[in-house]
Design a binder for these strands. Sequence first.
DNA 1: TCAACCATTTAGACTAGTCTAAACATTTCT
DNA 2: AGAAATGTTTAGACTAGTCTAAATGGTTGA
Lengths: 223, 223
Amino acid sequence: MNSSTEEDYLKAIYKLSPKFPDGVLTSAIAEVLETKASSVTDMLKKLSEKGYINYVKYQGVTLQPIGEEVAIRVIRKHRLWEVFLAEKLDFTWDEIHEIAEQLEHIVSVNLIDRLDKYLGFPKFDPHGDPIPDKNGKFQKIKDVALRDLNVGDIAILVGVREHSKEFLQYLENIKLLLGSKIEVINKFAFDESVLVRINGKSEIMLSSLLCKNISVTHEKPKK
Amino acid sequence: MNSSTEEDYLKAIYKLSPKFPDGVLTSAIAEVLETKASSVTDMLKKLSEKGYINYVKYQGVTLQPIGEEVAIRVIRKHRLWEVFLAEKLDFTWDEIHEIAEQLEHIVSVNLIDRLDKYLGFPKFDPHGDPIPDKNGKFQKIKDVALRDLNVGDIAILVGVREHSKEFLQYLENIKLLLGSKIEVINKFAFDESVLVRINGKSEIMLSSLLCKNISVTHEKPKK
DNA sequence: TCAACCATTTAGACTAGTCTAAACATTTCT
DNA sequence: AGAAATGTTTAGACTAGTCTAAATGGTTGA
Ligand SMILES: [Mn+2]
Ligand SMILES: [Mn+2]
Ligand SMILES: [Mn+2]
Ligand SMILES: [Mn+2]
């Protein structure tokens, strides 16, 4: 059994791995977990002892298969609880993350599979992120950042690459939500802002930072 | 904000209070929380410092209003989550307690009231215990132990006074559930066992210990 | 190549919670 | 009343997790 702290570390390492192919750095983990590098080092030693990770001093850390398994299980729980909070309890997508951050650590053999069934085995969470099934398998979505579209392109918003309240509330405000249709009207090289039409209605100017954090695709995500 | 450990202590003190009108004893708390008396003493000092309880060395402890408030809030959360687990996820009444023991500590301003609404504002949990409303108010049920009925009495099972898996699974086995109709056919002074008919069907002999832990009333509990 | 800089680890301290063993109160019994 | 038994608190130690400050490794670039 793992403590919720251990689970959060493994999850953080898992999420950082793609950006650090030959070892996630201590400082990167410290940043996402909002803790100090020295605390991270302590935990890395412990997780290494326990066989969850491969840790070489000063070189960074990679997940062992068993560590990845734990991470994926926690992510599955997190995202299923997010679906529950959004669909059944009507929370908005900026409110669910911090509650799910706690719920993901509830321990029970059956709970999460029953919740999965109750929710109808959803494939994506309210932020568009894929939900691993009980065997840890999930689709990698082939999406692209909104900033990489060309003028004239039409796309569907399928995910966000940033989960802060500020960002999500902003999108909610301008009615830019999961599934929204986005037409690229114009792009301005000067500040890399993009003019788009949302759902065939309002035209709006989006900043470079915004466009970098919105994932779109030309096909709708399957269920 | 309170740690989940503090919450569990306050809840334990609250539940023990009726049996210890002039101060809950250290050893009683240690027993229900499955910890050592010395650990309890440490926590009592801390809770006293913080103003949640009134603690006099060697004399036992009583709740301050603020401590009772916390306890009732935790109990509300526990019982609402139990309803969710039983009604929505089809867990049986012997499985829900230990999961709710964790869920009761989830921190969120809105979560529990939304869950309450989603469940239709239930008044009783799957064990027949009353659920405090958002103001901490709840009906005290005027029930009686099955062992105190007389031959010929007819009653409805409205609660259990013991929450162990063994006890609840036993009741489930003999189809003695919340709402069951119980007719007292005979009582035997020798070992205080009681012969009953359940729901007008099977006759069965119940042990003294069983009868002591079943709450019944002549009226059905309201919704 | 070696000095300077930056990242990482170590050393040592702190908090929350727990335990065992010893000391101390309270109650009970003779 | 005094002694014995029982319950409670204290003392001191341990684990998990965190922090600051100091030491050390690695990297860059003059
Ligand atoms: Mn978490
Ligand atoms: Mn999410
Ligand atoms: Mn609990
Ligand atoms: Mn209950």
